[in-house]
Design a protein around this nucleic acid. Structure first.
Lengths: 156, 156
DNA sequence: TAAAACTACGTAGCTGACTACATATATCAA
DNA sequence: TTGATATATGTAGTCAGCTACGTAGTTTTA
């Protein structure tokens, strides 16, 4: 990034956040590949959630991972294609589709556990700086909850 | 975001960054609208750069704002449609297209200056926390430069 | 007990960035 | 001076999320 944008600073913060996010995701892909694991970073929230709570409906998963339900549906389609999850009808509520990890999915989770551990450690080492990125995000989100960016601008 | 993903923590950091980025961008749109200004946050880097350096080629703009040149081209197309920028041929190098702000573009910049000021102040108030978000991003980017996420994971 | 309101799921299409590739022009080296 | 290489721009298609909207099943209420 050039000095010009550095100077305009905080106004380009949305772009900076997105770029960092993209870079981490791309490197995440490389890491799975390097371990010979056929898995994409974007699948992590769904699979991890199902690892913790084995049977959930589509909307429940969406709420857990904080995505819209259409985004969740498209992730589930990919995971079903990979045979990592399957679904069954909820017998007491015909509208619901209950999602579960397959045997292949459960085995993959076990295989990925040590990789997740190393990825966590690597991310921790990257973000262990005077201003901790995870904490900074949490602090900003908390501030937004108190008074949004929009409201703050109006009050200036 | 649910407790489950909080617990899985840092592995979902790419998603957290993107979500915060999206939220700030959306509120940015609302702010321009509330001021009756027909402008989108994604145009800011290009317009601000041309405000600072009045005549630049496509690739020069891309380099300044840190985007790929195709992304820059599509932003320029939108800005040309809005009649905020125009272009002329470089007479000494026929390959180049030189980009400039139009009169309308220059007037809009003047009109937006106070809004940019208030947005900066609002963002500063949001990110003025024990762990400063801008500094955290810079620190992580610096760490990545020293040793990437991928390399760090391999060494764990 | 039927109508209204709500909930769950799915599809279509948008967004804002990207990479890969194609073409045109400029420059450099033999 | 011409062939190789480099640079500038543009097009096409991808990606990971989103919103809007439609349908079907469930619950509530008059």
């Amino acid at each position: 990034m050039s000095n010009l944008i550095e100077a305009s600073g905080i106004l380009a913060i949305a772009t900076r956040l997105q770029r960092l996010s993209d870079q981490l995701r791309k490197e995440g892909q490389l890491i799975y590949k390097a371990h010979g694991i056929d898995f994409e970073p974007k699948w992590f929230p769904v699979v991890y959630t199902l690892h913790q709570k084995p049977v959930l409906s589509v909307v429940e998963i969406a709420a857990e991972i904080g995505y819209s339900h259409p985004s969740t549906i498209s992730l589930l389609k990919e995971l079903e294609k990979q045979k990592l999850v399957r679904s069954k009808k909820d017998k007491t509520d015909e509208r619901k589709r209950l999602i579960l990890l397959t045997e292949k999915g459960k085995e993959l989770v076990i295989q990925m556990q040590p990789v997740w551990g190393k990825m966590s450690a690597a991310l921790a080492s990257l973000t262990d700086t005077p201003n901790n990125l995870m904490k900074a995000i949490e602090e900003v989100e908390a501030n937004i909850k108190v008074r949004s960016f929009f409201e703050r601008e109006q009050q200036q």
